[in-house]
Design a protein around this nucleic acid. Structure first.
Length: 734
DNA sequence: AGCACGCCGACT
DNA sequence: GTCGGCGTGCTC
């Protein structure tokens, strides 16, 4: 055997827990190939983009089967050694194939093997003539006028990406201005935005100051901070002042947010404060835009990136700080494929990069509260609202035996009238869209069910149809019961559409706006609605989830949660934590500025300890008592879980799969196996679903068990008949 | 995940 | 006699 043989160990994005061996290209010295570079390799019938993991001198594979690398795509790795080890860690921790983990770290364009080159961005700058022109002279070309006006307010040349962010369809106008010699194009070099300028910052209150100083003192090393501050306590100001210190050191900042809808607001505030290159990354951008943002951070062209979960792996030329806002938010957990928690991976990344990680929220996850108790995270508590805003007053409204009109009790209606009479706004929260969640036959008891799911169809009157919220299937809304053909069909229960109609009746002359997935599908609708609300053109705002996140309604002084009880008795132990967070987050929409806000929770369980603790003693106390319950029940974070989900169109296959697996697996005293049991929604989109929950008192024991389990699963014949997935640290047991 | 190979039913 | 169903196995 020749010892100077070079074998490239390569990870390929296929669901296989194994690396593949290739021969090095003939025209390159294999020693120059560094782990992390992208390669094009022949694979099966076609080609794939692969990632070099390492170089070895031998292979387990018969040399006749070895193929040669087709092309080397990168001269040097795009990820640092530390980021590469992060990916190795993540693959081990989440028991996910390395190639798919690598793939998740790269933007789509680079996964497809596109060259890692940055297009020189075009910058727009006004000519002398353009700077002096009165925009009024372009009255007849509003687009051009708008663009000219915008550019006149800017000091530097403006990159196309920034114009994209603030104006729609500005390119034809730019062309026209160019033709009129008012505007010219510049290359990137002319725009050296390396000088830092900071626009006026606010004066932090003592608590903010304390928080800022603590993080700033730790800027050169790893530490995790939990910035806990009620809505309105000025977390963003803390972020910005810490970021300023990072920028002054010439380092970069990665800011992660749970949702795209929150990026524009924060982006705008950052751009007003910092005259540094800022970029964003989220799923609404094109593949090329995301690639440019990713590479721009990698090269160090940008100082700040704002992004969603998938931006977590963006390489940083000069890492300085990772911020993760709304750390409690479940959307940081990827729910398919590589099921990583962006929060947990961010912490590990911070450790590897030796930079601080700042987690912010008004309602910390129980895991983070626990980590503070354990001394792993440092708590920065903003207890006061910035300025002089009073905290909202919360009260439980007992609706047992009360007369209700479409979900609204009489005393609630009275309170709403009072608020409206003062010319203030009301916000109603109901986390269920559609008209009614159930359609029942008054005659025979028949209920409209989804044919493909273990679920009821939801009535959507506006569209005159029944829709399943789990698989999206639709049926025409029937005039009569299909079963007894005589009975009258009655919608049962409450959805936003129904409440909207009731509000129109109960509050004639008042303008009501409904914001849920159904009404905000079209682009820009939500933004328009938010503007209208803040201009005072709306009296009553009604909506779902999407109201709970981030948006501020200064003139809302009454927040109502119509149905709080459905979250109280879920089988998933995470439900109470989520409900408490939701209540506090929704409450945070009220009582900004000088007007004190009130929150009314309609409930039939006014004595429920979750509600009473939360309302009387606050979220912090709730969290501590919820943690105490978790400890007694030996639930996370006092134990460690992984959930094996299996689904198949054949109803018997999942259990057969588990049967085979249980026969192959060695019983283990340290890991409890709970199940297999039908999933809480036992059939969804035509697939039968089962799950097995694995739980252990220590993480190493759980992971040792999973290390043995995964090859067994891969070896089962039935893996082709079922879809299976492993979820480490599941947050959604559904 | 793709994709080919391979062995059993209704058709030019 | 063939086209094609999806069960099974492999990809260096």
């Amino acid at each position: 055997m020749r010892s100077h043989l070079y074998i490239l160990k390569v990870a390929i994005p296929v669901p296989v827990y194994r690396l593949f061996d290739y021969l090095p290209p003939l025209d390159l010295d294999p020693k120059t190939l560094k782990p992390g570079i992208r390669l094009t390799v022949p694979f099966g019938k076609g080609q794939k983009t692969a990632f070099l993991i390492g170089i070895d001198s031998n292979s387990e594979v018969l040399s006749a089967k070895l193929k040669r690398i087709e092309a080397v795509l990168d001269e040097r790795p795009l990820l640092s050694d530390r980021d590469l080890s992060l990916l190795h860690w993540a693959a081990r921790y989440y028991h996910h194939p390395l190639g798919e983990v690598f793939s998740a770290a790269f933007p789509v364009a680079l996964r497809q093997g596109k060259p890692a080159t940055i297009k020189a961005e075009k910058f727009y700058v006004l000519t002398e003539k353009g700077r002096l022109l009165n925009p009024e002279q372009l009255r007849r070309a509003p687009k051009q006028q708008q663009l000219l006006y915008q550019l006149q307010t800017e000091r530097d040349a403006v990159p196309a990406s920034r114009l994209n962010a603030i104006l729609e369809n500005w390119r034809p106008a730019a062309k026209a201005l160019q033709d009129k010699q008012l505007l010219r194009l510049e290359g990137a070099a002319a725009n050296a935005t390396t000088h830092l300028t900071f626009n006026s910052q606010l004066h932090p209150n003592p608590l903010q100051q304390e928080a800022i100083e603590q993080v700033v003192c730790a800027l050169s090393r790893f530490e995790v901070f939990l910035l806990e501050g009620v809505t309105g306590s000025g977390k963003t100001e803390v972020y910005m002042q810490v970021i300023r210190s990072v920028l002054e050191r010439g380092l970069q900042v990665l800011v992660l947010l749970p949702e795209i809808t929150l990026t524009p607001q924060l982006e705008q505030r950052f751009r007003q404060r910092f005259a540094v290159p800022i970029t964003v990354s989220h799923s609404k951008l094109t593949d090329i835009q995301r690639q440019q943002a990713w590479l721009g951070m990698q090269r160090g062209d940008y100082a700040i990136m704002l992004g969603t979960r998938s931006a977590l792996f963006t390489p940083l030329a000069r890492p300085g700080l990772i911020i993760l806002d709304e750390e409690h938010d479940a959307s940081f957990k990827q729910q398919e494929g590589f099921r990583f928690s962006a929060r947990d991976v961010a912490v590990v990344r911070g450790k590897l990069l030796n930079v601080p990680v700042l987690l912010g929220t008004a309602t910390p996850s129980l895991e983070s509260v626990y980590n503070v108790e354990q001394g792993r995270y440092r708590l920065l508590h903003l207890t006061e609202r910035a300025g002089n805003a009073a905290p909202p007053k919360m009260l439980l409204l007992d609706i047992r035996n009360k007369r209700m009109q479409e979900g609204l009790s009489e005393s609630l209606i009275a309170e709403m009238h009072k608020t409206l009479a003062k010319n203030e706004q009301v916000l109603l929260f109901l986390n269920r869209r559609g008209f009614a969640p159930t359609l029942i036959c008054h005659g025979c008891g028949w209920v409209a069910r989804c044919r493909r799911c273990e679920a009821n169809m939801v009535v959507h009157y506006d569209e005159s149809l029944l829709r399943c919220h789990h698989c999206g299937s639709e049926q025409r809304l029937l005039p009569q019961c299909p079963e007894c053909e005589t009975g009258q069909l009655t919608p049962l229960g409450l959805g936003t559409e129904r409440v909207e109609k009731a509000l129109a009746q109960l509050f004639p002359g008042r303008s009501v706006i409904r914001l849920d997935r159904d009404t905000t599908q079209r682009k820009g609708v939500l933004e328009d609605a938010l503007d209208r609300i803040n201009r005072g053109e709306v009296d009553i705002v009604l909506g779902t989830q999407m109201l709970a996140k981030g948006h501020h309604f200064p003139n809302v002084t009454l927040v109502v949660m119509l149905e709080v009880d459905s979250g109280l008795f879920s089988i998933d132990f995470h439900a109470s934590e989520k409900l408490a967070q939701m209540i506090v987050q929704v409450s945070g929409r009220a009582g900004r500025a000088e007007k004190p806000g009130r929150v009314i929770l309609q409930t039939r369980k006014p004595d429920h300890p979750l509600l009473t603790t939360l309302i009387k003693e606050g979220y912090g106390r709730f969290a501590r008592s919820a943690l105490a319950e978790r400890r007694l029940a030996e639930l996370p974070p006092y134990s460690f879980q992984a959930l094996l989900r299996v689904e198949a169109t054949d109803s018997a296959a999942p259990l057969q799969f588990f049967e085979q697996l249980m026969q192959a697996v060695e019983p283990n005293r340290t890991v409890r196996m709970l199940g297999p049991v039908p999933a809480p929604m036992s059939r969804r989109a035509g697939r039968y679903r089962y799950q097995l929950l694995l739980q252990s008192a220590t993480r190493p024991e759980l992971h040792r068990f999973l290390d043995k389990l995964m090859p067994l699963i891969a070896g089962l014949k039935l893996t082709r008949k079922v879809r299976w997935s492993l979820d480490v640290d599941p947050v959604d047991l559904y």
